[in-house]
Simulated scan of single mutants.
Amino acid sequence: MDIVIRYVFKHRATGIIETKVFSISQLEEQPAQKLSPCFDTTEYELIARNLCFDEEKGVFVGDLINVTTWFGSYIASVKLGEYEQDGSGDEYAPSKCFGFYAEATDPDRTNEKGYVIVPDYLVQNSLIRLDSYKLIGNIYQNPDQLKTEGE
């Protein structure tokens, strides 16, 4: 398994955002400047470098996903780092974990009956434990998605 990284660049003159995806083996084979003109720091600014969680679905750290649970659907941001995982429904203290996780962007959102869609113990949830999620997009090319989708 090769590690895959998404690079997000902003063209200095036009402000256009470009994304490039490379594996570690591609980056080791030749200098980055030969892989893409975006690595020219006089023309482009590197604004993000994200690890891939799910290569098949194209899900990277920094992406927004729509998570479906039996409570309802909610929007979450994909993150990598330390988080607290509690799958017990608040019966036990949460465990400190490290890895890829989904963090609800609007944890106080309610459904049509007034019930909270994301209980406290699911605000941060391991991506591996999620039964169903769908990629919405990334916040670099669609920064307004976070506001629109999280409402």
Rank of each mutant, 00 (worst) to 15 (best):
M1S: 11
M1W: 05
M1F: 07
V4G: 00
V4Q: 00
I5L: 05
I5F: 00
Y7S: 00
V8N: 00
F9A: 04
F9S: 01
F9K: 01
K10A: 07
K10F: 06
H11A: 11
R12Q: 05
R12W: 01
R12H: 03
T14Q: 01
G15A: 07
G15I: 08
I16K: 14
V21P: 00
V21Q: 01
S23K: 10
S23Q: 01
S23M: 10
L27M: 14
E29K: 15
E29Y: 10
Q30E: 12
K34F: 12
F39W: 02
D40L: 03
T41Y: 02
E43L: 14
E43W: 02
E45H: 01
L46K: 03
I47Y: 05
N50M: 02
F53L: 10
K57N: 07
G62M: 06
D63L: 01
L64V: 06
I65W: 04
N66W: 04
V67K: 03
T68N: 08
W70Q: 08
F71W: 06
F71A: 08
S73D: 11
Y74E: 09
Y74V: 13
K79E: 14
L80F: 15
E82I: 14
Y83E: 09
Y83T: 07
D86F: 04
D86Q: 05
D86Y: 09
D86S: 11
D86N: 13
G87Q: 10
G87I: 12
G89R: 11
G89K: 09
A93V: 12
A93Q: 09
S95F: 14
K96C: 07
C97A: 12
F98W: 09
F100T: 06
Y101M: 08
A102N: 12
T105K: 13
P107N: 09
D108M: 15
D108K: 08
T110H: 04
V116N: 06
I117G: 08
V118C: 14
P119V: 06
Q124L: 06
L130R: 02
L130D: 03
L130T: 08
L130Q: 09
L130S: 10
D131M: 09
Y133L: 09
Y133C: 04
K134E: 13
L135A: 04
Q141P: 01
N142G: 05
N142A: 12
D144I: 13
D144Q: 11
D144M: 14
Q145L: 15
E149Q: 12
E151C: 09
